[in-house]
Design a protein around this nucleic acid. Sequence first.
DNA 1: GAACCGTGGGA
DNA 2: TTCCCAAGGTT
Length: 365
Amino acid sequence: MAKNVGNYNLGHFNKESFQQDLLSWFEAEMRSLPWREDSDPYRVWVSEIMLQQTRVDTVIPYFKRFMEKFPTIESLAMAKEEDVLKAWEGLGYYSRVRNLHSAVKEVNESYGGVVPNTVENISKLKGVGPYTTGAILSIAYGIPEPAVDGNVMRVFSRIFSVWEDIAKPKTRILFEEIIREVISKENPSYFNQGLMELGALICTPTSPSCLLCPVREHCKAFEEGVQAELPVKSKKKAPRSVTMAAVVIQDEAGRLIVHKRQNKGLLANMWEFPNVETQLEYQSPKETLQQYLKTDFNLKVEIEAPFTTIEHVFSHLVWNITVYKGTLTEEITELEDLKILDLASLSELAFPVSHQNILKAFLAQ
DNA sequence: GAACCGTGGGA
DNA sequence: TTCCCAAGGTT
């Protein structure tokens, strides 16, 4: 019986044959990865959050360290956010781990420490969206839910020759509907992981290895010779540029002043060296910096010449930071979000990479 | 729907 | 160098 999903007719698609080809290939070729040692829902959960928009090779060492430090739901639930953020330092998208921490507390308190196994409950957890819901349910619990990530959209764009823009949110819905029709009910875990593995190893964004592809005979794009033109993905606009001034302030003992960022938005709750945006100011960067320190922290600082400039590129903006050296000219009263610390103490706080680079440049001068 | 939210790697 | 990312989610 021919099924229609959107404008796509799945009638001539041999679902059983496709499943068998994909599953056989995955069982033979799957990479040995730390989070594949078992299917503990907590480990699956942590790995899926880490893997969001992040390469496997980058995640591996973070995952190992994280699981050593926080081996169970309870251990993570009881941890201080400061320590959790530190374990994520350098991975990026830090709201991922703040949401994970919050959601793990929720599971510990409201679900007896057991990760929920229904779409209804698991998708309520902070940081668990449509993809992660399907990934955890299928991989940890064997429930046939679609887990549509970039790999899956790329693979199925080619399999069914779908020319919808995969950068559009609604396109994901289309692929979820397709997956619901073709997912293996017997082994949804390997089916979903197999699709992602195929996307990572064979059905790559540029120059896919079609001659090695286990599901080549099911692929409409290959049949039509258009695999290189799919998927269609619109470009995102260029990041905007922000000009900033930062200062590394030292006291007589050589300790450094650091500031904790606000608890929402960019790099929330991460530590940094005091800095201000200087884009549209009448004042010189140095005066802007001094005024910021005075009004926000009642701090008088002697600011010397800049010793480096740093460019840091985010996904949606670029920081151009001129970094000054400063000297503290009076006693400082520490605040919740302002501390003066020696280097050993600094190393216990979580800094974004941009400010790690500021410290490196300061120490290297 | 579009903007926000990081980082390091590879072509 | 520049561009595009890599197992997305939230607002």
